[in-house]
Design a protein around this nucleic acid. Sequence first.
DNA 1: CGCGGCGAGTGACACCCGTCACGAGCTGGA
DNA 2: TCCAGCTCGTGACGGGTGTCACTCGCCGCG
Lengths: 212, 212
Amino acid sequence: MTDSRIPTSAHPIRVLLADDQALVRGALAALLNLEPDLTVVAEVGRGDEVVDVARSSGPDVCLLDIEMPGADGIEATAQLREQVPGVRVLIVTTFGRPGYLRRALDAGASGFVVKDTPARELAEAVRRVHAGLRVVDPALATESLLGGPNPLTDRERQVLREAIAGGTVSSIAARVHLSQGTVRNYLSSAIGKTGTATRVEAARTAQERGWL
Amino acid sequence: MTDSRIPTSAHPIRVLLADDQALVRGALAALLNLEPDLTVVAEVGRGDEVVDVARSSGPDVCLLDIEMPGADGIEATAQLREQVPGVRVLIVTTFGRPGYLRRALDAGASGFVVKDTPARELAEAVRRVHAGLRVVDPALATESLLGGPNPLTDRERQVLREAIAGGTVSSIAARVHLSQGTVRNYLSSAIGKTGTATRVEAARTAQERGWL
DNA sequence: CGCGGCGAGTGACACCCGTCACGAGCTGGA
DNA sequence: TCCAGCTCGTGACGGGTGTCACTCGCCGCG
């Protein structure tokens, strides 16, 4: 309050925006630029361009979507933390899956906001992240704790990811370089761990819980 | 130009926004309100609230997403055309599936824009729709014409929709009140028409082509 | 009237899938 | 050292799945 060393408008917070949908990207820029203490200095539409643009534009906070071509927001977060020191990351994504939250925080994100949150809270989240605080959707945080850890092994995850498309066991076995019987065993154990009856249901529920 | 009966600022175009993601909704509102000749008069997050809010707020143009709870944007379009005369509809959606475009236009939409389009073009699309013109993403329009009509029968579509979740034939047969053998026949013919090998692949490709 | 097309169903066949039991190799911890 | 857990594989069983041929009734058309 009385400390003149923390000006709000003299040095606005510099924001980098990354979202694959140009319309959403531009709209978020308009929203954030309405705030006098925020300024959008760069926009990108691909995950693999984030680091380069961040180097040249020097943002304070990077606002990253997860679903992006090239590299997803979580990979981009890890790259930023490694190659662009000092920058903070706020993940803004459509799906509030507990596994996403865990992996985003592990990758070094400072905040995690779903696109269901009211628009006026986004600017405040950016300010909190810039101040060094953590911002996490509270409902999602409790769900993540209640959900427990991922019970699937690496192989089970790999096979489930291939099973989403709906191909036959032979095609999955060919893609992951395993025997058909082994693939069926992994699928069977994944079906058991997810409490489902078919491989497709198993893949869908595992995806919803962020286990992939 | 010389016609004073079409003022641009005296009577700004009144816009209703419908999108299930609050953040995107608010951001689009910020974007459109930057234009002096546009004003966002209402925002809704569910498809089944569109008609009521349109009645009370009196918009000129309704900007509808397709993926919404309650009723999707295409249903909402049909209801608007029927119950709120004079209002025009512009569909703004994530997925540029040819079937969506066709069904949206059949329902009475005046425009169809995907969220990949640049942000600055959205306001222009709203103005064109308000002026009585049609606005259709050109790439999508050609793809829709090339794709040809929907080859699936009603029953095949119904069975495919149920098959997306991945359940067994018995559960599908119970939900659609058909024999198991009949369900398998419809699935088989749908698999043939989509050029796939399994029911899940058939359901996915049919969905991508907008055949459901 | 016959004819074809479509919806709905039945039956049969080969194949695929989910499950279980079992074995071998490998790694890390008590 | 033994034990536990993960990986990868094989073999077999029962049931589910995809395909085909065929039937029956209904409707519209020439």
